[in-house]
Amino acid sequence: MDGIHDMGGFHGFGRVDTTNETTFANDAQRRIFAINMLSVMQGVYNIDKTRYYMENVDPSDYLNTPYWERWLGMVEQLYREAGITAESDQSEIPGARRIPGDKLWDGFRTLRIPEPPPLPAPIYSVGESVRMRRDSVPTHTRLPHFLRGRVGRVEDYKGIFRFADAYASDRPENQHVYSVRFTGDEIWGSGCEENTSVQIEIYEPYISERVAHEN
């Protein structure tokens, strides 16, 4: 979706306050961090949905709400959709499990990303130039706006991963992922800083076409 969260390249935010080390400003922020992380670990909802719900808000609210406070509305809504409200008496969420406090650290510490199921062979190869699609989807995507239509070089093939765009809408789907590099000039034009680039993971459906090498 074209949301305010997709802010790469925006002007006007000023200098970076490099001294801002604050992780949590109060206990309520600690609790909402933990409630959300535990909910994801317990399988109440997936992480892509959390991102989608956080970005799908009024842009002025997004900009004016402290970081952790933006999480609260998202968590409330996801539980509401799962039927857990003060008005209902529901206490079951299909597919979710409860992790007791004394089992949490071992699970966290030893987390491994499960092997994804296989897919047909990837379409693109390392060294090829590829153009990103120009389509803007109204739902969650991980292709930043500043790369739409841009051409980059496939630097690496990373494997098969959960496709965030699909999982955010509860569709389990996996895709090949490439690491693609774009020069500063390609993205930002003549105003770019010298000798800079952006490298990013690109799910295969984000690529519209192979581009013949110029020169």
Partner: peptide, 17 residues
């Protein structure tokens, strides 16, 4: 509702910090 163990929340905060 029995959906989260408050001790697991304390544990996650301790892990984080």
């Amino acid at each position: 509702r029995g959906l989260v163990d408050p001790a697991a929340l304390d544990e996650l905060i301790d892990i984080a910090e």
